[in-house]
Amino acid sequence: MTNNKIMFTNKTKSLFLSSVVVLSMASCGDKHNDPGTEFAANMYHSVGYEPLSQTEGDTNHINPYGMNMRLPVKGTVPRQYYEQAIKKDSIDGDLLQMDLVARNIKSGDMASSEALLTNPFEPTEANIEAGKLQYERYCIHCHGEAGKGDGAVAKIYKGVPVYSSDALKNLNDGHIYHTITHGKGRMWAHGSQISSADRWKIVLYVHQLQQAP
């Protein structure tokens, strides 16, 4: 009987101990920095080069810093609308034509942009609405809802102008496009973030804000 009793208490002890170990393992540990256990890693990690993949062990050995993305070759122009450009009356064609002109204008050459660039998009309601959408995504935090330079960021960035001011209210397509693409004054270049089509649509909406009282 006594023997039996000791055996049982030993069992309970070991059970108790193991449960404590399991529970502490489950509850502790650096959860924030640890993504957790992965099963079948070869189905989780891409074999092909995904643009933003970040896997330890099989980083890219060809590119610097193990990155899968590379910068485009200097001086090259993306020609994603190449086929449409041959057809004359398509918007993509007009856009590409204008893009080729714009890409040849240096960042300091505002005068050429003013003289050579015109908006390939017509100021239709749909286009202006699309421009407004892009304006709200890329511009509004500095330039403000009505282009008065009163966005949330403008208060600390400073020097954000009013579109309807005497100096800006008559600026043309090319000037605004050049400003978005290469920056002007305190504003830095946004050409890398916004596609040229979206930039032209923003120009349409900015024209509307220039005329606002």
Binding site: S18, S19, V22, L23, K31, H32, N33, T37, E38, F39
Partner: peptide, 30 residues
């Protein structure tokens, strides 16, 4: 009762851990 309770606790911890495999919910890396 105690044996049952401990077995259940261990069982639950095991199942929870198994379900958590491959799920990164709550992951907030520095």
């Amino acid at each position: 009762g105690a044996a049952l309770l401990i077995t259940l606790l261990i069982g639950k911890a095991t199942i929870d851990a198994a379900y958590g495999v491959g799920i990164h919910q709550g992951y907030a890396p520095e």
